[in-house]
Design a binder for these strands. Structure first.
Lengths: 253, 253
DNA sequence: CGGCAGAAATGACGTATGTCAAGCGCACTT
DNA sequence: AAGTGCGCTTGACATACGTCATTTCTGCCG
């Protein structure tokens, strides 16, 4: 596939999607596929796991997958598109909790309160696999690998939240944010140096606990310093190593 | 028991301890006891759960329960004393992650990386129940209530971390911190209005992502406003309701 | 009792980042 | 094509909080 590239524009990256699953195969990049494949479970177990999956979508940009207070019944794996989760605090300020890419799982933070503590909103057209959580935990009691996977998914999410909670300046936060996004895209088989930011500057700012203006300024500075190229929301990391270095205090691995 | 109370000093609260368990009974306040009692498991299951418990301690103030990088084999329930967990980032700055009271569980954030991502240090003389994690997850596959309890414990910890990650000013953070501590003491059967701060101002500051001086100033102001009484580390909440109000954006329930 | 060391409180000052305001560009509607 | 709204950028200014310095308090040990 060869697009033309007019007037110095960044070429568009392929649209990230993890949608190659069917009735008997998981999507390659799904957070759960590993549980079965790696652990050598056979057809019967795979089929059982598939029984409790339901494909849902499309959700269009701005549509809610779930809302704060909805009873917790399922977790969702992103098949395609991007999701942001956010809480609104008692005096109405939104707090973005995270962004989720194809292959990642949302809803894990609802287990304890037994209802969703946040909203989940599609940032672009998005598709999901919905897993009934009661069914999944029942299955987990028979398939240790599934239980293990769930423990690890939640524990990982905990690690992420912890890092974000640290006190770091705007440059560190932004560099870590970009590096983390890049790593997650790469992990799922997409380009780790050129991708589309599906969220607005405002959402990024909110997520990083900065003002939108600060995000603009930091990005401009990164551009001037030759760390990135950026046109609208099309991003190219020109010096990923330096970015990683700047954000290292916020990055686990 | 009746102490005298010289010259306007705050009377000392009883030393919080949750140490009434034995070979066949859990401590009343233990985070796991509920899993069995509430779910109506009988003697055999209780005994099984006890088989994988080992009582450890005492650890004295400043001693490590575990260190960053230690292989993850067990989680720990606090029986008595207080613990702080903290990470040191790549350039040597400490980050306090949390404080843990009797009845609470530490080590859950080690599941994903499969090694402890932080240090755990006793703030005063502390005793623990150590649970082998492999044994516990094996047991969890046979006792859904145990699995459920584990999911909820991790998910709860996730909720805590998320709240701390929000952006809030020093007053809100401090009020929420005090209110949360109070609630947790009360939940475990101790006084929820009068207790001992086992951590230094510096640790509190670090936990709340503030400077130690800011913590001092906020506490002084709270005192002037009649919200609290404070002598050294002995604390009395004079207006818990108002404190809760100030910190409400950081408090889940 | 005296002296010391660490913890805590208080004051003076600097700064990173938030807030306010203005302007630009792009998409969409009429 | 003109109009409208929203997202983004940029500049000027305000402020909450951090940093540095000094003092006070507290517990500890000889």
């Amino acid at each position: 596939m060869c697009r033309n590239n007019p007037a110095g524009r960044l070429p568009e990256p392929p649209n990230p999607i993890a949608d190659d699953g069917d009735e008997t195969h998981f999507c390659r990049t799904c957070a759960f596929s590993g549980a079965c494949i790696a652990e050598g479970y056979g057809k019967p177990e795979l089929l059982e796991l598939h029984c409790l999956v339901e494909h849902v979508g499309p959700f269009h940009a701005g549509e809610h997958i779930f809302r704060t207070g909805d009873p917790f019944r399922s977790i969702f794996a992103v098949r395609a598109g991007t999701v942001k989760t956010s809480m609104v605090d008692p005096d109405g300020h939104e707090q973005v909790l995270g962004f989720y890419l194809p292959g990642e799982v949302i809803g894990l933070n609802a287990i304890y309160p037994d209802q969703f503590p946040c909203d989940a909103v599609a940032l672009d057209t998005a598709y999901f696999c919905r897993f009934s959580f009661p069914a999944m935990s029942a299955l987990a009691t028979r398939m240790p690998a599934v239980q293990q996977r769930l423990f690890r998914l939640i524990s990982k999410e905990l690690g992420m939240a912890t890092l974000l909670a640290g006190d770091h300046n705007a440059d560190m936060r932004m560099a870590a944010f970009l590096t983390d996004l890049a790593a997650r895209y790469e992990e799922r088989g997409f380009s780790g140096t050129r991708f589309h930011l599906s969220m607005s500057r405002g959402d990024i700012a909110n997520y990083l606990r900065l003002a939108a203006e600060t995000v603009s300024r930091v990005l401009s500075r990164f551009r001037q310093q030759g760390l990135i190229e950026l046109e609208g929301r099309e991003l190219l990391l020109r010096d990923p190593e330096r970015l990683r270095q700047i954000g290292k205090n916020l990055l686990s691995h």
